[in-house]
């Protein structure tokens, strides 16, 4: 009889709902240490910094700190240098790392794992350690400079200059190339060889295989890796400071010097930091937008 059909509410259902809410509450409870810690020691200080950057050192509201960033030549030069430096270092790291990863995935598993473990090492190394290592290796009287001079019988005025932009980029490459290697190795491993084979079987030429199969698969990962590189380089200053002190003008060094050195002016440092965050966030957004667009077109 169809009219006697009634919905029987299972007693278990209510129990399920109850258990789910308890679980949810427990999860929030477990998140609490994280939320409190990040809230108090990361979000609050950042918001505080953003607000204080709008006041001068006597507590009067002003946008002068931001006006300074775009009118004073030392800040404008710093921003320009930082953009150029971060782009150059990211490109060197990005291309170098992609190359290393491409080689790594062609090695037998044992050697690939060895190479990738080795390239994970710089991640934890102090910027000062790397600066010191390169001073010994390539400083004015560094070992490599001595060897080259000895071989070609050159005067001591000839040396690779570690203390100019190309040298600084080269030292940072020691961090950036391994970092990119690790992200690209994962991307290359996801590249399905049968896809390439299928394209070849369908008569694609080598450049067509690259253009329509390989690059669309690699590019999103490459761009993701590049954003990590660029963001990291915008904020980097430890190694430069160890190599050349304040002789080079970078946005990160300006922030550092306004926050903790002789030119102490925290609201100004805050304004510079906000500008730095804005630049980084814009670059990240652009790169992730590009990656998403490409991902959509690639499939």
């Amino acid at each position: 009889m169809p009219d006697t059909v009634t919905v029987v509410r299972k007693p278990a259902a209510r129990w399920e709902v109850w258990r789910l809410t308890v679980f949810l509450r427990m999860e929030v409870l477990l998140l609490l240490p994280f939320l409190v810690f990040i809230g108090l020691f990361e979000i609050y200080p950042l918001v505080n910094m953003a607000i204080r950057s709008l006041f001068d050192q006597n507590g009067v509201f002003t946008i002068q700190n931001y006006v300074n960033v775009f009118t004073e030549s030392r800040f404008r030069v710093a921003i320009r240098n930082s953009l150029l430096f971060a782009s150059a270092a990211s490109l060197v790291g990005g291309i170098g790392g992609t190359f290393v990863a491409a080689l790594a995935v062609r090695l037998p598993p044992r050697w690939r794992n060895f190479l990738l473990s080795l390239y994970a090492l710089p991640m934890t190394l102090s910027g000062l350690v790397v600066a010191f290592a390169f001073i010994v290796l390539l400083g004015r009287n560094g070992v490599l400079n001595l060897i080259v001079r000895r071989i070609f019988d050159l005067p001591p005025t000839v040396y690779f200059n570690l203390y100019d932009w190309p040298g600084i980029v080269m030292v940072y490459a020691f961090f950036q190339i391994p970092l990119m290697t690790l992200s690209m190795a994962a991307v290359f491993e996801n590249l399905d060889p049968s896809l390439i084979e299928a394209a070849r079987n369908l008569g694609a030429r080598p450049w067509q295989v690259w253009r329509y199969v390989v690059i669309p698969v690699l590019l999103p990962g490459f761009l993701a890796g590049m954003s990590i590189q660029f963001a990291g380089m915008m904020g980097a200053f430890g190694t430069v400071l160890a190599l050349v002190g304040m002789a080079k003008n970078l946005l990160s060094l300006q922030i550092y010097s306004h926050a903790s050195e002789s030119t102490y002016n925290l609201p100004q440092a805050g304004a510079l930091a906000i500008v730095l965050i804005t630049i980084t966030a814009t670059a990240l957004a652009l790169l992730s937008w590009g990656a998403r667009r490409l991902a959509r077109r690639g499939t």
């Binding site: 950042l46 904020g235 922030i255 930091a273």
Partner: peptide, 15 residues
Amino acid sequence: LVFPPLVVGTALLQA
């Protein structure tokens, strides 16, 4: 990524 050590340091210092 968005808040590098440098920025966190500046913010902590002030707060």
